[in-house]
Computed example of a mutant assay.
Amino acid sequence: MSLFWRIFLLNAAVLVVATALLLLGPATVSTPVLFTEVVIAAGGVGVMLAANAVLFRMSLAPLRRLTRAMTTTDLLRPGRRLDACGQGEFADLITTFNTMLDRLEAERAASSSLALSAQEAERRRIAQELHDEVGQTLTVVLLDLKRVADQVPEPLREDLRRVQETTRAGLDEIRWIARRLRPGVLDELGLTSALTALAHEITAHAGLTVRRSYAPDLPALDERTELVLYRVAQESLTNAARHARATKADLSLHRTADGVELVVADDGRGTGGAPEGSGIRGMRERALLIGARLALGPAPGGGTRVRMTVPSHTAPRADAPPHTAPPADAPPHTAARGDDPLRTAAEGDT
């Protein structure tokens, strides 16, 4: 039955009942109207209005639930659906709304995947150009400064030494930016080595002490899953250092019954109920790409805790190295820093 006919029949039923009571009941209307008759008529109108309000509220309850769902739905928190209860058009409307959510979530996931893939490709290109072009140029400048410093008189030599140190610091900064844009150690040695290198870099540049804990029995993950885990850890540690004013953070990666779980907890000032920024929403978008669940809330001892659970349906990479967790106090692998030919040239004799 359509909404029009339901409303029409409800009103018709109320009017028929009221008319029958007026015709068959003892109530009459005299001239002039008596006070008791006014009270009876007003009571009858009140009863009719109340009956209409109750009936309409019951009939339109599915529409109110649908309105609340429309105002609270967030595509970054998928999976929430309404039960297609009600009759006729209401059930069809809820079913259509659920179908629309399925389509929107699928389209958002596809568009986010394309956007993030393009972003990672652009990061890789910029990191490669920083390393190959700018890094090589600064390395040549350092070598030329060293050659000139050996030939100039002693009063000018100290000034050239300071220029060398400034150039070397700029080269180190460019190399650090390139590693943040695209961590080569992630592709070469796997996730745990990349997280170790990330923790050391955050400690060196931001002063945030990062305690690490990796399970020894981590399953092999595909390349996209490893990259998402790394980016979420990177964003969480960066937020803890820059915005939360934290001094310590715990980074753990362990196996669960249905997959892998990454937890980053800090001792900062927390979110304070502030709306989520682009960084957190970016983490949620990345989690959706691999079907992971991302939860952000207060840490037990204060601060913020980010927890991402990755399901175990991800396929392992064909060329993935074994995930042997390094010791918690181990320095980053030399592939992240020491084997860099630019660093070797830059750290030659001064």
Rank of each mutant, 00 (worst) to 15 (best):
L3N: 06
E120S: 08
R175Y: 10
G259C: 09
T19Q: 14
L288M: 11
R224P: 00
A346P: 09
A61G: 11
G184N: 06
L289A: 09
M48P: 02
G190L: 05
L24W: 05
T137P: 04
M1S: 13
Q151R: 14
D267Y: 00
G272T: 13
N11C: 15
R175K: 14
L75Q: 07
T71C: 08
E154R: 14
Y230F: 09
P183E: 05
P322I: 08
P316A: 06
H131M: 07
E129K: 15
G297K: 01
L237F: 02
A315S: 13
L208D: 01
A178D: 00
L104T: 04
L101W: 02
L195N: 03
N11F: 15
L22I: 10
L229I: 05
T256C: 06
R317L: 05
T71F: 13
G170V: 07
L229F: 03
L75R: 10
A299R: 02
R64Y: 07
L218Q: 00
P321Q: 11
S193E: 09
G43C: 13
A249W: 01
L21W: 14
L237E: 00
L63Q: 04
P78H: 03
I7Q: 06
I7H: 05
A320K: 02
P341V: 05
A118C: 10
A204D: 15
R343E: 02
R305Q: 12
L130G: 06
R6A: 09
T28Y: 07
T95D: 07
I177W: 05
T271W: 10
E158S: 15
R108E: 06
P326G: 01
T344H: 12
I290V: 10
P332T: 03
L104D: 08
P62I: 02
D267S: 11
D329W: 13
P219M: 04
M1V: 15
A220R: 06
L156I: 11
A110H: 09
V260F: 11
L186S: 02
Y230C: 01
T334A: 14
D150K: 05
D339Y: 13
E285D: 13
R125F: 04
R64Q: 10
S213T: 13
D250E: 12
R211H: 12
G207A: 06
R179N: 08
L116F: 05
T95C: 09
P298L: 07
R162F: 11
S312D: 15
P32N: 08
P153W: 08
R307D: 02
A315Y: 01
L63Y: 04
A118F: 03
R6F: 13
G184L: 02
A106N: 12
E188W: 04
L76W: 04
R175M: 12
L198D: 00
P219N: 03
D250M: 09
R293V: 06
L195I: 03
L288I: 05
L138Q: 05
V38R: 12
E37P: 00
A121L: 08
S2R: 12
T225E: 00
A274I: 10
T247D: 10
D74R: 08
P326H: 03
S111G: 10
L23A: 14
A27D: 12
A336N: 01
T225R: 01
A20I: 13
T334V: 11
R179K: 12
W5L: 13
L253H: 00
A246D: 11
T96S: 11
G170D: 09
L143I: 15
R182F: 12
T166I: 15
S252T: 11
V260R: 00
D258Q: 12
